[in-house]
Amino acid sequence: MPEKHLSTQFDSELSSVSSRVMEMGGLVEAQVQQAVQALGQFNAEEARQVIELEHRVNTMEIELDHEISSIIARRQPTARDLRLLMAISKAIANLERAGDEAEKMARMVLSIIHNGAPRALPASELRTAADLAAGQLRKALDAFARLDTTNAVAILKEDDLIDREFDSFVRVLITYMMEDPRTISPSLDLLFLAKAIERVGDHAKNIAELIIYIVKGADVRHSSIEEIESVLK
C-alpha cells in the first residue's frame, strides 16, 4: 500500500501496519460472514464463534493503535504519510465497530433461538441485506489494500441498496407486529439485528471514503456521489 521512502525501516513499519490491518479486516469479515450464517440457519454454535472472535479483534485494535502512535511519534511523518497513518487509524476503528455489530447480530440470533421465536417471522428476508453488507465489507477491504478509488466509489454507490433493504424489512416487521402482538418481542430482536446489518454497511462505506482521503487528500464524508466523482477527476 505505502510508497517507498528513503528509510527502509519506515517502509517496513508501514508495511507491517498495513498487513496487520488486513489481518484484522479478515477476522472482522469472518465474524460478519459467520453471523450471517448463524442468522440464515439459526445456528447457536456459529453465533457463539462470532462472539468468541470479538476478543481477538479488540486486542488487535489496541495493538495497532499503539503501533501507529509509536510510528507517528518516532517518524514525525508529513503530508501523504501522515494522511495514510491517520486513515489507517480510522479504518481500524471502523473495523472494530463492524466487529461489534457482528457480535450484536450473533447475540440477537442467540436471543431469538432462546426465546423460541415463531418460525413465521421473516428472518430469512434479512439474508439479502446481510449478504450485501458482508460483501460491501469484503470489497472495501480489497479496495483499501490496493487504494482503489474506482471500487471505492462503486461501494459508495451501492450503500443505498442496504438502506433500502433495511427500510423494506422494517415495514414488513411492523405489519407482523400489528397483526399479532405476540410477535412484538421477537420482532424487536429482528429489528435490532437488521440495524446491526445496516451499520456494517455503514462502516464499509466509511472505509471506502478513507481510500479517497488517502489518495486525493479530500474529506468526502457527507458528500454526494457527483461531488466525489468530481474530486477524483
Score class of each variant (00 low, 15 high):
18 S>D: 14
23 E>K: 13
29 E>W: 01
30 A>F: 01
36 V>E: 01
37 Q>H: 10
42 F>M: 15
42 F>V: 12
45 E>T: 07
46 E>I: 02
53 L>I: 00
55 H>R: 15
57 V>F: 02
60 M>T: 03
62 I>D: 15
64 L>W: 02
66 H>A: 13
67 E>C: 06
74 R>W: 10
75 R>D: 03
77 P>G: 04
77 P>E: 04
78 T>D: 08
79 A>K: 04
88 I>V: 14
89 S>W: 12
91 A>H: 03
93 A>T: 15
99 G>L: 05
100 D>S: 12
100 D>R: 12
100 D>V: 09
103 E>L: 06
105 M>H: 02
105 M>T: 00
117 A>E: 12
124 S>E: 15
128 T>M: 07
130 A>M: 08
133 A>H: 03
135 G>E: 05
136 Q>N: 11
138 R>F: 08
142 D>F: 11
146 R>N: 13
149 T>L: 02
149 T>Q: 05
149 T>D: 06
152 A>T: 03
153 V>R: 01
155 I>H: 02
156 L>G: 00
156 L>F: 07
157 K>T: 08
162 I>D: 03
164 R>S: 10
165 E>A: 09
166 F>M: 01
168 S>D: 10
171 R>N: 10
178 M>G: 08
180 D>H: 13
185 S>G: 14
186 P>C: 11
189 D>V: 03
189 D>W: 00
190 L>F: 05
193 L>K: 02
197 I>C: 01
198 E>H: 00
201 G>H: 04
201 G>V: 00
204 A>G: 09
205 K>H: 12
210 L>I: 07
215 V>A: 04
223 S>G: 02
226 E>D: 14
